[in-house]
Design a binder for these strands. Structure first.
Lengths: 233, 233
DNA sequence: AGGTCTTGAATAAGTCGTACCTAATGGGTT
DNA sequence: AACCCATTAGGTACGACTTATTCAAGACCT
């Protein structure tokens, strides 16, 4: 997972990115190139490349004679995986988890419905396998192993939908599920009803019942939203 | 809209990006820095910065002793506004329009439901105003003026949802609507039923009826999906 | 002889430092 | 108030050096 940090500009990025997304540099703050150059003890080239990436994420805008200014939050590329990661690791993790869970609640049911139509036999088998895995690990404080199957399950659903935009949200859902597990009390087993819903979704997708797959998945996400109220403001 | 093209690296980006996303350089293709340097007649610095941005979009991966290799489509940051723009302008525009419309159909109904709960009085007024504007321009070959209100309407809904992830999809929806209009016969007025639905959504949001706002918006997106079948394979 | 392992040269990206260019800003002049 | 110019900080260029990776030749073992 830690494919970042490659090269010096990667290191600079991994320092500035989290800082900006965490709000350490409020919108409007100006960063001067030579100041950063000195702070990180790297050449101008390195700083500029890091800035270019931050700029492509719409986190900053660089203007001549002014400097590199932090852009307002509403303009950030909040779908960039790295931005999502930084924000989840930072201060407003609760807010971010909320946003992503709401997004999930919108996307996953529709994705499941499409999966019921487009899923290949292999994907159906995979789905059933993951659901069985969830059942098997749902009792006896094996939340970490349960999580693996849970993530895989939702990843398959999103991929099987046949929509590339949905498929690319697999990592987002994985991050949300991981966040949920981490904040859970480690001795609380998953809700049996949720586990059952996953099994039923797998079955609905297998038999091609789109409406049922969508409706069941909606129940799952409603549950996820409800859980969230316990954990986040 | 054309805030890009700033600087030489911007120009390089605007040349390489569309080419890659259009499939002119199939995944696995290697681009060498000095070759590009020569092709665009710019310095190494400029090429490197363009490459860094493409890399941050997950369009390419740069490895030592190998070169800059184009990554497989499934790994692209398909939510990056520029990637979306390039693909919409390129060869597989139909596919892209389909993907985005499906995404819309998942997101907008939920967003409308949330908007009914969170919308400020100003946003409600704005929404009604845009809906009225749509009514006023829905007859008599004023598709361009109708489009402005249509885009504004959906933008307000997404923003009023209170979810930043939804709000950032405003541009995407705008692009889809624009694409729809451009491919429409210029003498075909919008479907009166669709116009009516927008008015009803505005009203539902105003009175805070989330379920109705969601359901009505779902009808709108279903209509959009149906339209799509006429235009795309 | 066939195959695996080691080693080293070739290569292309990564980094650096400096010099110069360009545009936006702000103050001073008319 | 309109205009102009010096200042400033990012943008670009070039050349030298560094480092990771690859690939192939040669040593080594089976």
């Amino acid at each position: 997972m830690e494919n970042q940090g490659k090269g010096l500009h990667g290191r600079v990025l991994e320092s500035l990115g989290p800082a900006i997304t965490a709000g350490d540099y409020p919108p409007g703050t100006v960063l001067r190139t030579d100041e950063l150059e000195e702070r990180f003890d790297v050449s101008r080239t390195v700083i500029r490349e890091a800035i270019r990436v931050l700029e492509s994420m719409q986190l900053v805008a660089s203007r001549r004679r002014v400097g590199v200014t932090v852009r307002p939050t509403e303009e950030w590329n909040v779908y960039d995986p790295r931005v999502i990661g930084w924000r989840l690791a930072g201060r407003d993790r609760p807010r971010q988890l909320r946003s992503l869970t709401v997004l999930r609640s919108a996307v996953e049911p529709v994705a499941a419905g499409l999966a019921a139509i487009h899923a290949t036999p292999e994907q159906c088998a995979d789905l059933t396998e993951q659901a069985m895995g969830m059942v098997a690990t749902s009792r006896g404080q094996q939340l970490d192993r349960y999580l693996v199957h849970d993530m895989a399950f939702h990843h398959v659903v999103l991929t099987a939908s046949g929509n590339e935009m949905f498929a690319r949200l697999g990592d987002v859902v994985a991050a949300v599920l991981t966040g949920r597990t981490q904040h859970h009390v480690m001795f609380t087993d998953p809700d049996p009803a949720a586990v059952s819903l996953h099994v039923q979704v797998a079955e609905a997708v297998r038999v091609g019942d789109a409406a049922r797959a969508e409706s069941l998945t909606r129940e799952i996400t409603v549950g996820a939203m409800a859980e969230l109220d316990v954990l986040a403001p």
